[in-house]
Simulated assay, not measured.
Amino acid sequence: MPAVGAAILFFIAFLVNAAEISTNDAFTSVNLMLLGLTALALHLAGVGGGWSVRGRRR
């Protein structure tokens, strides 16, 4: 799931950069790319990887 969020953040950062939209300091394309890289790193680390079965079968 974090990989999907990363892809969305990268796409928004691309649109901001390609359209040369002037934004405030907190919403720049570089900051969006860094948030995307953080989400991608969390995905590769296994955070939000899916379901895990933690029960015993009898």
Rank of each mutant, 00 (worst) to 15 (best):
I12R: 05
L37Q: 12
V47C: 13
A41Q: 05
R57G: 04
P2V: 02
E20H: 11
L42G: 04
S29D: 07
G50I: 12
V16W: 02
A7F: 08
A7Y: 11
L32T: 02
L9H: 08
A39F: 03
N24V: 03
L34G: 07
G36W: 01
A6Y: 00
R57Q: 05
V4Q: 15
R54G: 13
V53A: 11
T28E: 00
L15H: 09
G48D: 14
A39K: 01
V30I: 13
N17P: 04
F14S: 09
A3F: 02
N17W: 05
L40K: 04
R54V: 11
F27Y: 13
G55Y: 12
V53G: 05
P2H: 08
V47N: 11
G49I: 06
D25M: 07
M33F: 14
L42P: 01
S29F: 08
G48I: 11
N24D: 09
A19G: 00
V30N: 01
R56A: 10
L42K: 00
G5M: 06
T23A: 05
V30W: 03
L9C: 15
R58S: 10
V4N: 15
V16C: 02
N24W: 01
L42I: 07
V30G: 03
A26K: 12
G50Q: 13
D25L: 09
F27W: 12
G48E: 13
E20K: 11
T28V: 00
N24S: 09
V53Q: 07
A39V: 04
S22E: 09
M1Q: 14
T38F: 14
N24F: 03
F14K: 06
V4D: 15
A26E: 03
F10R: 15
R58K: 10
G5C: 07
L37E: 08
V4G: 13
L15G: 06
E20W: 08
T28I: 02
L37N: 12
L44A: 14
A39Q: 04
G46Y: 01
V53L: 11
G48N: 15
V53E: 03
L44I: 12
G36E: 01
R54M: 10
F14H: 08
R54N: 12
A7T: 15
A3I: 09
V47S: 13
W51G: 11
V30P: 01
L40S: 06
V16K: 02
A18M: 12
N31M: 13
F10I: 09
E20T: 08
A41W: 00
S22P: 02
A45I: 06
L9G: 02
N17R: 05
A45V: 07
D25E: 09
T38D: 03
L15S: 10
D25V: 09
M33Y: 13
L35Q: 06
S52Q: 07
A7V: 15
F27M: 11
A39E: 02
A19S: 09
I12T: 08
A39Y: 00
V47H: 14
L35N: 03
R56D: 05
V30F: 06
F27I: 10
G36Q: 02
N31D: 07
